[in-house]
Amino acid sequence: MKVSLNQRILSRNEKAAAENRAFFQSQKILCLNLISSPGAGKTALLERTIQDLKGQLAIGVIEGDIETDNDARRIQAVGARAFQIETKGACHLSAEQVQDALRKIEAQTLDLIFIENVGNLVCPSAFDLGESGRVVILSVPEGDDKPAKYPGTFAGASVVLINKIDLLNYVSFSLRRVLADLHTVNPKAPVFQISAATGEGMDAWYGWLRQHLEKNRP
């Protein structure tokens, strides 16, 4: 006996994501979901961004890691509100976990929220958190084949950051190839070459943030 169903499997995540999205829109909050491999520099990027912009904006961070609250403590140390989600084995964050974290950091008083997803280039991209946009970060030492190997992740990006650009002369990495592959899978997303360590290129990233914050509150 066969039973036809047509039942949505991740409907719980989809419902929570839709509620998060409605919350961000009503509160005029820009919420960005950061996706990258482990070690691409997501936390370093946030530390520098917070230090440079905290005088102008109320910034909060939701941290996702399998274990430890190391990242949340790093964010708090530079003066932003942070809440750590320990996923205990799960390779991505879910919209329900984010919903809970939003209450804990009193999100309604913030202008800008970063969700630092679990370091992983595959799984997080399959889960909508209700975010306003996705920031995909690729770092130079990871190699120049990542956009071609993980096209789905890069295709879903609102903006792509190539981090650790200061290491370009020390490793084998074809910037031309990366830019060409990014243009193939996602011609609409702007690409910024940055170094969260030296500060190189960060102004262009801040410009993009400001532009999207303004778009959010006309």
Partner: peptide
């Protein structure tokens, strides 16, 4: 989306 289409019993 992810959909459960059919179950055979």
């Amino acid at each position: 989306p992810l959909i459960l289409e059919e179950i055979e019993f």
